[in-house]
Design a binder for these strands. Structure first.
Ligand SMILES: NC(=O)c1ccc[n+]([C@@H]2O[C@H](COP(=O)([O-])OP(=O)(O)OC[C@H]3O[C@@H](n4cnc5c(N)ncnc54)[C@H](O)[C@@H]3O)[C@@H](O)[C@H]2O)c1
Ligand SMILES: NC(=O)c1ccc[n+]([C@@H]2O[C@H](COP(=O)([O-])OP(=O)(O)OC[C@H]3O[C@@H](n4cnc5c(N)ncnc54)[C@H](O)[C@@H]3O)[C@@H](O)[C@H]2O)c1
Lengths: 220, 220
DNA sequence: GTCGGATTGTGAAAGTGTTCACAAGCATGG
DNA sequence: CCATGCTTGTGAACACTTTCACAATCCGAC
């Protein structure tokens, strides 16, 4: 079987959230149709996504909410706890530390690093900020699996190098720069400014701009 | 010409960043090849992306860094200032207020709203937190174009409804729930937990799990 | 003026992801 | 125990995206 697409994994994450709330509501079964409607996709899409990993439904009835939720949890690795290192104890970093959704999904931020010696030793939500130079040592000691980068963009690449040298293979980067992943290393870049730009593109496009029909777009 | 894909818009945003830094470095021209290498895509991809909007290059030479940057700015709507409302002055909201990249791209957060009366009237980075009930009035007064939702997930849908009722058409949502967009309204959902889940999926998949070859994945 | 080297712009081909459509299969009720 | 109604699982069709490949064309050197 071929590699699973990123889009499928993203949708599984979304289904997982719906299943959790259906379970809370006490619902036992759910059909691909019901799940699809909640996420604006087709029922066939839901079934295809799941069929990549096996057969989990019962024809005529649908899927067991609880079983499907557990299954997706295992697929996504949510059935266990991941130890996460956060680098950069600035405003975004501090917000992320207090983000409860991470912990709820099994992502525990177990260490925060910074290179600002004024911050090192201070606390953020019960976590002592550590000197970035202790990173290699702590990755081993705390059995860290994942890292989050929340440092200014000029420091991001060097922090990524450091993390990779310390043995980490999975990095979530919030600095607005596309970090490159060497083979075997996975880096996901989250860029919030780009999200806003997609909106402003639409705002412009809807109003005045039609592709191929826009004289003032020609280079000056 | 057909509708431009989201992927293309995202890449334009990324090219834009490279162009800005090339311009700072004083470079005059850039080839599709050079731009492609910076972003891990093919040169053909770069050219196709640009060709959706017109012809901006010179054969044999490449693209003028400065002109191409301005052109993309116009396509994405970065040549002007957008007034942004932020709803939710919690930890994420406060981080977003101090996020300089937004302002640099022309996204000015001009108002912050909250429903917690203890917070209303207090300041965040020079912005006074306003009572959410004043939102409709302020959208008009401040000519607000875009909104960012940074409230807990249970409040997100009702805040979205409120924003739409106040006349806003573009919303960036950070609550971990997929808000649905009625026709004419665009909502982009940013879900950071999903980003981590994509990483943990890979971590699990790389180690032990191969699709279609995983006995313990069968429902219990 | 024209030749050579370089790079664009773009149809066509290849590759991916999504939707369709229906046989297969299960639970329930008579 | 079989007919009925519903929903899954999946190959095939379709749609969209990316890559290929090359003619078009521009600059600068001679
Ligand atoms: N603030 C936001 O809302 C927001 C939103 C999206 C993305 N971002 C991005 O996230 C990153 C952090 O943003 P922020 O607003 O928290 O910035 P910040 O300046 O508040 O914090 C950055 C922190 O990183 C530390 N740091 C700098 N270099 C370091 C290094 N080499 N090693 C370890 N630590 C180092 C600094 O000491 C500081 O504590 C930036 O790249 C920013 O563009 C921020
Ligand atoms: N903290 C993070 O790093 C982080 C990261 C990603 C996503 N998020 C999401 O962003 C949202 C906000 O997170 P947070 O950590 O800032 O939470 P928070 O509790 O610190 O802040 C939420 C704010 O929203 C306000 N609020 C609640 N209901 C409201 C309403 N109906 N109208 C106006 N304001 C209202 C609250 O008074 C509070 O000030 C949540 O949905 C969270 O899941 C947070």
């Amino acid at each position: 079987m071929s590699r699973i697409s990123d889009a499928t994994i993203t949708r599984l994450s979304q289904y997982y959230r719906s299943l959790a709330s259906l379970e809370e509501g006490g619902q036992e079964m759910v059909s691909s149709m019901a799940l699809a409607r909640k996420h604006g996709v087709t029922p066939a899409q839901v079934r295809k996504d799941l069929s990549c990993f096996g057969q989990f439904g019962t024809r005529g009835l649908g899927y067991s909410v609880c079983q499907l939720k557990e299954t997706i949890a295992r697929i996504l690795g949510l059935h266990r706890i991941w130890n996460v290192a956060l680098v950069g104890a600035g405003s975004l970093g501090s917000a992320l530390i207090s983000y409860k959704e991470f912990k709820r999904q099994g992502f525990h931020i177990v260490a925060v690093f910074d290179n600002d010696l004024d911050k090192v030793g201070k606390k953020r939500r019960g976590l002592t900020i550590l000197d970035i130079r202790r990173l290699p040592q702590m990755v081993k000691k705390l059995d860290i699996n994942l890292a989050i980068i929340a440092v200014p963009k000029d420091a991001a690449q060097s922090v990524a190098d450091l993390l990779i040298k310390a043995g980490l293979k999975m990095i979530l980067n919030f600095a607005p720069i596309s970090l490159k992943a060497s083979p075997g290393i996975t880096i996901r870049n989250v860029n919030m400014a780009i999200e806003l730009e997609a909106l402003s593109y639409r705002l412009v496009a809807d109003k005045s701009f039609r592709p191929g029909n826009n004289p003032q777009l020609t280079p000056v």
